[in-house]
Simulated scan of single mutants.
Amino acid sequence: MASEGTAGAEGVGVEGVEPGTVRPGGRTARVREAVLRAAGDALVEHGFDGLDLADVARRAEVGKTTVYRRWSAPAGLVADLLTDMAEQSLPRADTGSLAEDLRANARLVVRTLTDPRQGALFVAVIAAAACDPRTAEALHRFYAVRIGEWSGSVEAAVERGELPAGTDPGEVIAAVSAPLYYRLLASGAPLDQEVADRAAAAAVAAARAGVFVR
């Protein structure tokens, strides 16, 4: 899904993270923020295979010992990066309309995936997850958090009578973003607002037809 606090740029959400976010917590929090931003930069430039803790420490201007002691391995660093991205994600849209909520979700995903930095970051993390179990677990947690957040839109729609009882909220949200990630990772077809709106409309139509009833 989808930011940018530690990982971001240009005001686009990693499925919704505000740029320049700095949370309280003193020096430890500042060090973590600097290291995670540096890790994101390194992933964008070199991919997971090129992620080196000493290089990250240099970029973040912190001691190598600090990085090795806290994260121990590149997989641990990527896992914490994904945790941070999930923690900083913005709340879901709440427009009172399922179609509008899911359109907002789809447009946010597209903005994230087409951002030069964020799109490259997601591709690098997904590639890493394909070959590293710890990164895969962290990626699954990230998307579980994002799907859980946006599932509230579907639950509200069921309560309003927009959708059949028993509709699986997570499946509806996943159906919105799945074709967008397919374009990013498989087909290479363009990603734009029209594509986002079509993905949202398709998910809404399927949900109303009862496709996602458990």
Rank of each mutant, 00 (worst) to 15 (best):
Leu184Trp: 03
Val204Gln: 04
Thr95Ala: 13
Ala79Asp: 03
Ala136Ser: 13
Thr167Met: 08
Thr167Gly: 10
Met85Pro: 05
Gly210Tyr: 04
Leu102Asp: 03
Pro19Phe: 03
Val44Asp: 12
Phe48Thr: 07
Gly148His: 01
Val14Asn: 14
Val204Met: 03
Arg58Ile: 00
Ala196Glu: 11
Leu53Arg: 07
Ala130Lys: 10
Ala206Asp: 10
Val22His: 13
Thr112Val: 02
Gly50Glu: 01
Pro190Cys: 10
Ala186Tyr: 08
Val56Cys: 12
Gly210Phe: 02
Leu82Phe: 13
Ala106Trp: 09
Val204Phe: 02
Ser97Glu: 00
Asp49Ile: 01
Tyr68Ser: 05
Val78Asp: 12
Leu139Phe: 13
Met1Thr: 02
Ala186Ser: 13
Leu51Pro: 04
Thr114Leu: 09
Arg198Thr: 12
Glu100Tyr: 11
Arg69Lys: 11
Arg111Ser: 07
Ala201Asn: 00
Glu171Cys: 00
Gln118Lys: 15
Ala93Ile: 00
Ala207Arg: 07
Leu77Lys: 08
Asp168Val: 00
Gly25Trp: 09
Arg27Pro: 07
Tyr143His: 14
Ala104Ser: 09
Val211Leu: 12
Ala175Cys: 12
Glu15Gln: 10
His140Trp: 10
Phe122Asn: 13
Glu149Gln: 10
Thr65Arg: 12
Arg32Ser: 14
Leu82Pro: 05
Leu139Ala: 11
Ala79Phe: 11
Val31Cys: 11
Asp55Pro: 03
Val31Gly: 08
Ser151Pro: 01
Arg92His: 07
Tyr68Phe: 12
Asp197Gln: 09
Val158Gly: 07
Thr112Arg: 01
Arg103Trp: 05
Asn105Lys: 15
Pro74Gln: 02
Pro164Val: 00
Arg141Leu: 14
Pro24Ala: 10
Gly63Trp: 08
